[in-house]
């Protein structure tokens, strides 16, 4: 019974939260898009192209945030063998991979007109590409074993090893000369972005975070149901 105590409680909390998250997302998405695409002023140098930031930055933040989530959940799964942590890590991986891809693609589309190139091998871009491959490796490793428990353990270890990449991504623009600009928002001396552009960006960040929460809950519910079916089948076949 102990095995199911926590997933059951998760189900109850998730069921209660889901409608609120969905409503908040429905309300905030059009507001955020209107702020980003209409209200926010064009940049003094980049003009309208700066608007790519309103997708690129939230996607890149979610890419690293989701990986941090997977790493923490993997540590909990490895040490305390908590089944819910395993489910959470596994459910988050494809979502994180998708956001990493979005960050890479939008960055590339912005880079061509602004930098003059689609891609360079500087520390920031390369470390984010590695993050994308880590996601793919994590997903592949999960399914590479006959025994799902062994696959989960191998993938959890990979997730933890890959976690050293997170500080490298964040500080790559400070530690080395890169083509990518340093952080405009999370910096010690305060944001270097005008408030009229910062607020739409923060709204979009919230929209992306809510979307992650929504998809994560839905995917976790699906996987828990799958596990239950699997267990029922196994006990049915045995008895």
């Amino acid at each position: 019974m102990h095995r199911y105590a926590n997933p059951l409680r998760f189900q109850r909390i998730a069921d209660a939260l889901l409608p609120w998250i969905a409503v908040a997302l429905l309300v905030l998405t059009p507001i955020g898009l209107y702020q980003a695409l209409v209200l926010a002023p064009p940049d003094y140098q980049q003009g309208e192209a700066a608007r790519i930031m309103y997708v690129h930055v939230p996607a890149a933040w979610l890419a690293t945030f989701t990986y941090a989530l997977i790493a923490v959940a993997s540590a909990i799964a490895l040490v305390w063998r908590h089944p819910l942590a395993e489910v959470a890590a596994r459910a988050a991986a494809p979502v994180g991979a998708a956001f990493t891809a979005i960050a890479l693609i939008t960055g590339s589309v912005w880079g061509k007109p602004m930098w003059g190139t689609w891609w360079v091998w500087d520390a920031r871009l390369t470390s984010v590409l590695i993050l994308f491959f880590l996601y793919l490796g994590y997903i592949a490793l999960h399914d590479a074993f006959e025994d799902p428990a062994r696959g989960a353990r191998a993938a959890s270890i990979l997730a933890l090893v890959g976690a050293v990449n997170l500080p490298i991504i964040k500080f790559s623009v400070d530690w080395w000369n890169t083509l990518h600009q340093p952080s405009s928002i999370l910096r010690l001396d305060g944001p270097t972005i005008a408030p009229s552009m910062l607020w739409p960006l923060l709204t979009m960040v919230l929209v992306f975070k809510l979307y992650l929460a929504l998809v994560l809950i839905l995917r976790m519910r699906g996987q828990l149901a799958e596990r239950r079916i699997h267990n029922l089948r196994a006990s049915g076949a045995g008895g």
Partner: peptide, 18 residues
């Protein structure tokens, strides 16, 4: 043989920079 522009971390509307 190749020149790339490096954008800085300043984002602001034209009125503010003026």
């Amino acid at each position: 043989s190749e020149v790339l522009a490096k954008h800085d971390e300043q984002y602001m509307p034209r009125e503010v920079s003026d």
